[in-house]
Design a protein around this nucleic acid. Structure first.
Lengths: 129, 129
DNA sequence: CTGTATCCCCGAAGATACTG
DNA sequence: CAGTATCTTCGGGGATACAG
């Protein structure tokens, strides 16, 4: 691993990297684990797909809406907001009229593609059975 | 990536590795993407925690039940069954009386820890803000 | 000890209508 | 165009009882 255990408390990741989990895992502590939060964010219904589309190129709001078949306006907005809060996507407003909004991957978002590709690799290797 | 695009159809991963997604993503095709399925499996309420516990050492059924605070019998069994079907965990029955069952990570399961550690690394780097 | 079977609840996600 | 507001629906997950 790049730089040994930073101060990530007693989180899930510790089992993969270091000493381990407590004898009894309090529900709250587990839910606070940032790795848990990451996979749960990526594991919801639309997040990964949207990240991958933005990995291709930036998209306008309605462009995403048309391309992601079946997503509701509500969920598209909500998903983008979460990704924005996590600093994975950037939101750029063009002060035209009517206004245009472009979503794209941030640097942190592009870095996310690396572990994601690692996961994809694991999936592909697993297909051999 | 290790060996170029295998025959993974037009799946999500393609955006990270190669040419890209269709102009309009049919909902069904997206749900069939194995990477999507992987993150969605890991992103449910208990899976990651259980994988991490089994990464430490094998556990008996009730041992897990006690250690994973708040999990219901139903969900523990269900989670383990899915992981077993995915060949991530192994299930070993000891024909004692009463019977004992031990769960552990398979080879494929241990390989999963690598991309997971990569994800953890990304999370840790992201804390710098 | 290691489960399966039922029933129930609540929150995530969809549908629809409206707005700057 | 890019959203917000409200209502509804659906299924993931909890509780409980029972079984091999």
């Amino acid at each position: 691993m790049s730089d040994g255990n930073t101060d990530v408390p007693r989180h899930i990741v510790s089992a993969a990297l270091g000493p381990g989990l407590p004898a009894k895992v309090p529900a709250g502590e587990y839910e606070d684990c940032p790795v848990t939060q990451a996979v749960q964010m990526l594991g919801d219904k639309w997040t990964l797909l949207i990240v991958m589309m933005l990995a291709e190129r930036p998209h306008r709001y309605n462009e995403l809406r048309r391309r992601v078949e079946g997503i509701s306006q509500r969920m598209l907005t909500r998903t983008l907001r979460v990704l924005e809060e996590e600093r994975i996507v950037t939101r750029t407003v063009f002060p035209t009229v009517p206004p245009g909004v472009e979503y794209g991957l941030s640097e942190r978002g592009r870095e996310l593609l690396v572990p994601l590709a690692g996961l994809a690799d694991w999936v592909i290797r697993g297909r051999a059975a």
